[in-house]
Amino acid sequence: MLLKNRVAIVTGASKGIGKSIALGMAKEGAHLIVNYNTDREGAEKVAREIKKYGQEAVAIQADISRGEAVKNMVKLAKEKFARIDILVNNAGLMLEKYLFRLSDEEWQRCMDININGAYFCSRACLLQMLRQQYGKIINITSLSGVIGNAGHTAYGASKAALIGFTKSLAKEVARKNINVNAIAPGYIGTGMSRNFIRQDKGLLDKIIPAGRIGKAEEVAQLAVFLASEQAGYIHGQVINIDGGITL
């Protein structure tokens, strides 16, 4: 098992890519904190499923855009498991709107969740990781943060910020045996991008070299690899998992 007895926090793990990552890590032996904001039922279902694999799991509510809520979540996690080995900053808000239609509040909410959320969670977990001299932080960014996308000005900007965050933090903590990397998924068949994919399916099939949309499980396997010892020498990288679309 690649992650035997490791303790992982996955934000936004009640559904979609976050759920798949949480389950993928549990299958490899990790205990999980399944973070959610509003979908309590979904998160508890994921936690129950993880327990079937023989791992411990707890669903914890926290709005990651609020620093105090994140601190409480991390405190509860430490009380329960005494350590935090892996943090997956997955929770995100996808906003599809042209810039001239975007309100200030929408822009701010996108930034609050997608970049400030990663900042609050990383900072709260980092102290424990530094004490342990071990940690893996995986940020889920996006194709939109790498190559941009019309209608994704706020979303793309927040995800591009997450890439800068990843590279800088990686350089800060690499010598402390903490790996910080990012995954940039392309079109993945999950709830967040389902509408977008449905509208553009014909076009997507043409523009994706692989000729298909990705699966959340495929993103999860990459996250499991990055969280494992095998990826111990990978720091500050952004790995595009997009069927070759960014080539």
Binding site: A174, K215, Q221, F225, Q230, A231, Y233, G236, I241, D242
Partner: peptide, 25 residues
């Protein structure tokens, strides 16, 4: 060897044309 094995395996699904930099940052 770990990253090479990962890329050689079916676990690396949906990755195409990627260059994984295994260089300590």
């Amino acid at each position: 060897t770990g990253p090479i094995l990962f890329l050689a395996s079916d676990k690396a699904g949906y990755l195409f044309g990627e260059s994984l930099k295994v260089d300590g940052g």
